[in-house]
Design a protein around this nucleic acid. Structure first.
Length: 411
DNA sequence: TCTGGGGTCCTAGGACCC
DNA sequence: TCTGGGGTCCTAGGACCC
């Protein structure tokens, strides 16, 4: 099924004829750093770190050359520079990553319409229906890797398996620039020796609890009674790990998903006590959230404030509104009230965040869509629009987007 | 070592309703 | 009258993922 190549990385030996591995997980290699290198080809082969060059920042991405020094995403920049003093640090350019991501997703969409973007740099594909046209999962994975590189200059790794979880695990093992196919009959042999951290949803805290049960591998989790698992990590987590560890993952590839919340947060360069400075920041965050709510055509029913003090203790406060809103000013007023109730006498603040939750689409807009500002005019409910224009007016409007939350009706 | 910013999901207690 | 259980909503916190 697979072998180790010279670098110790797993790659599929020659084409695997197995249609059971119809779910592909495509994961870009060192995505942000690779996009930066497109503009700076002279840096290829060098340790490059993407991140802000400031005291409180963390590593956003690192090339494999930098990772060899122990540098990883989310590591404090200061620590990364100690580990790899020669690293070249580049400022992030999120617009460029978004553009590259769209290009990649378009290419994936040429293989099958069943593409589920998982984040900016990875996606699941269900290629069961593309089999006759495009060949085996191995052939399809190979073709995708070639097309992505030809179209963007970026490398990606692909895992193929019968389930999402195994496909994702496989792409991880194939990295960088690899392809690994796990036929269904080989799933358990591949899965059982993996470490606990390979389980989706197992981080440092859960891993420690599992270790206290005497477990060390995915196979150990599969063999332990689910009741013991439940006591250690709770009902939902236990059920999920029980299934995943046995290679069971019922999730299918879904192409649309509704956003559940929209928020912004910021960590100050220095801890802040000045009320006016906090107010300004709160207003900026709220305005940003409002703009994104309007652009998405949704309203927030709940506003939440996140507060982190200089000692890193963090709290959240939230309030559900009688009338949902997408207006920055309203979000700001709520956030300020929440802050007043939680500020603890002006303790120095390290981070402020504002988030709109409980999003609702029960609203239609009458009027103009503005490219920069989104929906602008007076709002009214879907029912009110239906009463005025008839139910029929809602249906064509709903076809404007894949998951419209607000509809465009023209007089 | 001194910890970003974007999110999702789960738990748990209390309020409230039937 | 001192006793129930299910369901849903709200709030707060925590773990996790990229």
């Amino acid at each position: 099924m697979s072998k180790q190549d010279g670098s110790g990385r797993q790659v599929s030996a020659e084409p695997v004829e197995d249609d059971s591995a119809h779910i592909l997980h495509v994961d870009m290699d060192a995505f942000y750093a690779s996009v930066e290198l497109l503009d700076r080809p002279e840096l290829a082969g060098l340790p490059v770190i993407v991140g802000h060059d400031s005291a409180r920042s963390v590593v956003t991405a690192a090339t494999y050359e930098a990772r060899r020094y122990g540098v990883n995403s989310a590591m404090p920049m200061a620590q990364a520079m100690r580990l790899c003093p020669n690293a070249i640090v580049l400022e992030p350019h999120f617009d460029a990553y978004l553009r590259a991501s769209r290009q990649v997703m378009r290419i994936l969409g040429d293989t099958t319409p069943l593409v589920e973007p998982l984040s900016i740099d990875e996606a699941f594909l269900d290629v069961a229906g593309a089999r006759r046209l495009l060949g085996t999962p191995w052939q399809i994975g190979t073709r995708i890797r070639e097309q992505v590189f030809a179209g963007t200059g970026l490398r990606c790794s692909v895992g193929a398996a019968a389930t999402k979880y195994i496909a994702k695990l496989a792409s991880g093992r194939a990295k960088p620039d690899g392809l690994l196919v796990i036929p269904e009959h080989a799933t358990l042999a591949f899965l059982r020796p993996q470490p606990l951290s390979a389980l989706w949803g197992v981080g440092a805290s859960t891993e420690e609890r599992l270790r206290r049960l005497g477990l060390a591998t995915v196979g150990d989790v599969a063999d332990v009674p689910v009741e013991a698992l439940r006591r250690a990590i709770g009902d939902a987590g236990a059920a999920r790990l029980h299934d995943l560890s046995r290679g069971r993952d019922p999730r299918v590839v879904v192409t649309t998903r509704e956003e559940k919340s929209i928020g912004h947060e910021t960590t100050f360069g220095h801890d802040v006590t000045d009320r006016r400075e906090l107010d300004r920041a709160l207003r900026g965050l709220a305005d940003g959230v409002g703009a994104r709510l309007r652009a998405a055509g949704v309203l927030a029913r709940t506003v939440s404030l996140k507060l982190r003090f200089s000692d890193f203790t963090t709290l959240t406060r939230s309030r559900t509104l009688a009338d949902p809103t997408d207006i920055g000013r309203r979000l700001y007023e709520e956030a300020r009230t929440l802050y007043d109730g939680a500020s603890q006498g002006g303790r120095p603040v390290r981070l402020l965040g504002v988030r709109g939750e409980n999003l609702t689409g029960e609203v239609a807009a009458l009027g103009l869509w503005d490219e920069d500002e989104g929906w602008r005019d007076a709002e009214t409910t879907v029912d009110a629009v239906a009463a005025r224009f008839g139910r029929g007016a809602l249906r064509p409007a709903a076809l404007l987007g894949s998951a419209p939350r607000r509809m465009r009706i023209e007089d």
